[in-house]
Design a protein around this nucleic acid. Structure first.
Length: 466
RNA sequence: UCCCGUGUAGCUCAGCCGGUAGAGCAGGUGGCUGUUAACCACCGGGUCGGGGGUUCGAGUCCCUCCGCGGGAGCCA
C-alpha cells in the first residue's frame, strides 16, 4: 500500500520533482505515436484521476504498456511534473510501470470507459465502484456517515449497537424477515399442528429488526443522549426506487426532552451533516451537480443556511386547502399527508425546510405521546424542498396508563411490550427521538434517483446476487 | 402485490405494413496526433430473454413465463 494517494498528489502535498510510487486502476489509455502514452489512473481517494505519462522509450513499452487496457491494476513509480496539457496541473512521468493485475479479456471487461446505464451497473455491482458515479456516491456515503457520528459524539451522544435480531414480532413497522434454524423440510409441530417455535434456535420466533428505536429508548432512559446507526430490514414486497429490503437508519433518542427539543436536534443535525458534505466533498458534489441533478448542491446549501419553520399539522392542512391547488389526493384533517402535499408545503407555501408537528393520532404509531387535545400526538416530520419527508420522529409516550390505553386501542399485545412498559414504571421521563433513512439522505444529497445506487450491494425483492 | 413500459452484438440503441440483422462505442490491425469519453480506415463479433402458437415464412403478430425499469400502495 502506497502513501502516495492521488488526493494528496493532486492537492500539491508532494512537490514537482519528487519521485512517488502510485497504485490504482486504469480508466483510459491514449497513445501518441509521437512517443507517449497517457494513462488515466484512479485510486478512489478523490474524484479526479492522475494522468500518467509514459514515454515510449520506457523499457517494456511495446510489450507491456501498449497492452494495458481499462481496468488493469498498476503500480507506477515516476517523477511528478508540471503538466504540459490541459485538465490537470501535475502529472506523473513514469520511470517504471508494473502491471499488478491484468484484465483477462479487454473485449468483455464489463466496465468500459464510457457511460453505462445505472440498470446495467447494478448487474455488475462488484465492478461498478470503478465508475465515477458509484465511487463518488461511496465517498459521499462515507462522509455523511462520519459526519453523523461526529455530530453526535461532539454532543455527548453514545452510539448504541441495538440488536439486529429481535425476538419481538410486534414492532409494528411492516413485514419482517424470519430468523430460524429450523429444518424447513421437517418443521417441528405442536399438538395443534402449528410450527413449534419453542424448538427453534432462540426458543421462540425471531426476526431481523425493523427499527432500533424501542431498544434504544431503554438506553436513553439511563444514558440520556443516545443514537443507533445500523442496518434495518423490511420484508415488504415493495419494488420502488425509494425502498430497500436492507437499509441503514439513524435514530437518536434524547431524555428529558419534548417535541420542541426534538425539532431543534433534527434541524442542527441536518445542517451539520450537509455542511460537512459541502465542505469535504466539493469534488464529488460538482460531479453530481453537472451530471446527475443541477439542483442538488443548492438544495443542501438551502438546508444549511435557512432556519426551519415549524407549523402545526392542522395549520398545514388549512394552508393546503387555502392554496386552492388541485391535488391527486384531496386534503382534509385526518389524512396522512401525501408526498405531493409535503412537497407543495415545503417548496411552494413555505419555500424551505419545515417541521410539521402534532399529527392526528390515528395515523401515527402507538408510542407517540398523546397531546392534551386527545386527538393529536406529538409527532414531527421534517419536510425538505425537492424530496418531501426526510425525517420522522416524535416525543414518546412516557405515561404508562396512556401508553396502555393506546396499546389496547390499537389491539396490540401488551405482554409483548412488557420491558418497554417497564421503562414507564421505573423512573420514566419525557423523551423524544427521530429516524433518518440514511440512503434517502444520500439520495437527497446526490440527486440519485434510485436508492439501489446509493448502497454498495442493494437488497430488494429478487435482488441479493452479490 | 397492482398498473404501464421494456428485453436485439461486450455496452447504448435502430430495425416500417411479417420476407431469416444494422449503427455508434468497446475489441483487433494499420495510420495520425501532448492526449483528455482522442481522431481516421479496415476487420472480427448475434440461438433477437425462455417456452408455446399463427403463418409458406416471425426480431416483428398472439399466448405464457422470467428478468429489468417507471408509477401506485407501503414506508425510511
Amino acid at each position: 500500500m502506497t502513501e502516495h494517494r492521488f488526493v494528496d498528489i493532486l492537492r500539491g502535498k508532494f512537490e514537482v520533482g519528487h519521485t512517488v510510487t502510485v497504485e490504482g486502476w486504469v480508466r483510459t489509455r491514449r497513445d501518441s505515436k509521437a512517443g507517449l502514452s497517457f494513462i488515466h489512473l484512479l485510486d478512489g481517494s478523490c474524484f479526479d484521476p492522475l494522468q500518467v505519462v509514459v514515454p515510449s522509450s520506457l523499457p517494456g513499452y511495446q510489450e507491456t504498456v501498449l497492452k494495458i487496457s481499462t481496468g488493469c491494476a498498476l503500480r507506477v513509480e515516476g517523477e511528478l511534473v508540471a503538466s504540459q496539457g490541459q485538465g490537470q496541473s501535475v502529472e506523473l512521468l513514469a520511470k517504471h510501470i508494473e502491471v499488478v493485475g491484468w484484465v483477462d479479456d479487454p473485449e468483455t471487461y464489463p466496465m468500459q470507459a464510457k457511460r453505462h446505464t445505472m440498470e446495467y451497473l447494478r448487474e455488475v455491482a462488484h465492478l461498478r465502484p470503478r465508475t465515477n458515479i458509484i465511487a463518488a456516491v461511496t465517498r459521499v456515503r462515507h462522509c455523511l456517515a462520519q459526519a453523523i457520528h461526529r455530530f453526535f459524539h461532539e454532543r455527548g451522544f453514545l452510539w448504541i449497537h441495538t440488536p439486529i435480531i429481535t425476538a419481538s414480532d410486534a414492532e409494528g413497522a411492516g413485514q419482517m424477515f424470519r430468523v430460524s434454524t429450523l429444518d424447513l423440510a421437517a418443521l417441528p409441530r405442536t399438538e395443534q399442528g402449528a410450527v413449534d417455535f419453542s424448538r427453534d434456535f432462540f426458543g421462540r420466533e425471531a426476526h431481523l429488526t425493523v427499527s432500533g428505536q424501542l431498544n434504544v429508548e431503554a438506553y436513553c432512559l439511563a444514558l440520556s443522549r443516545v443514537y443507533t446507526f445500523g442496518p434495518t430490514f423490511r420484508a415488504e414486497n415493495s419494488n420502488t426506487r425509494r425502498h430497500l429490503s436492507e437499509f441503514w437508519m439513524v435514530e437518536p433518542e434524547i431524555a428529558f426532552a419534548d417535541l420542541q427539543k426534538n425539532v431543534a436536534l433534527a434541524e442542527s443535525f441536518l445542517k451539520y451533516i450537509f455542511a460537512a458534505l459541502l465542505h469535504e466533498r466539493a469534488d464529488d458534489l460538482a460531479f453530481f451537480r453537472n451530471h446527475v441533478d443541477k439542483t442538488c448542491q443548492e438544495r443542501l446549501e438551502k438546508i444549511v443556511s435557512s432556519s426551519f419553520e415549524v407549523i402545526e399539522y392542522g395549520e398545514a392542512v388549512e394552508r393546503l386547502l387555502a392554496s386552492k391547488k388541485k391535488f391527486e389526493f384531496p386534503v382534509s384533517w385526518g389524512i396522512d399527508l401525501q408526498s405531493e402535499h409535503e412537497r407543495y408545503l415545503s417548496e411552494e407555501l413555505i419555500g424551505g425546510p419545515v417541521a410539521v408537528i402534532n399529527y392526528p393520532k390515528q395515523i401515527k404509531a402507538f408510542y407517540m405521546r398523546q397531546n392534551e387535545d386527545g386527538r393529536t400526538v406529538a409527532a414531527m416530520d421534517i419536510l425538505a424542498p425537492g424530496i418531501g419527508e426526510i425525517i420522522g420522529g416524535s416525543q414518546r409516550e412516557e405515561r404508562l396508563s396512556v401508553l396502555d390505553a393506546r396499546l389496547d386501542e390499537m389491539k396490540l399485545p401488551k405482554q409483548e411490550y412488557w420491558w418497554y412498559r417497564d421503562l414507564r414504571r421505573y423512573g420514566t421521563v419525557p423523551h423524544a427521538g427521530f429516524g433518518l433513512g440514511f440512503e434517502r439522505a444520500i439520495q437527497y444529497a446526490t440527486g440519485i434517483d434510485n436508492i439501489r445506487d446509493v448502497i454498495p450491494f442493494p437488497r430488494a425483492p429478487r435482488q441479493a446476487d452479490f
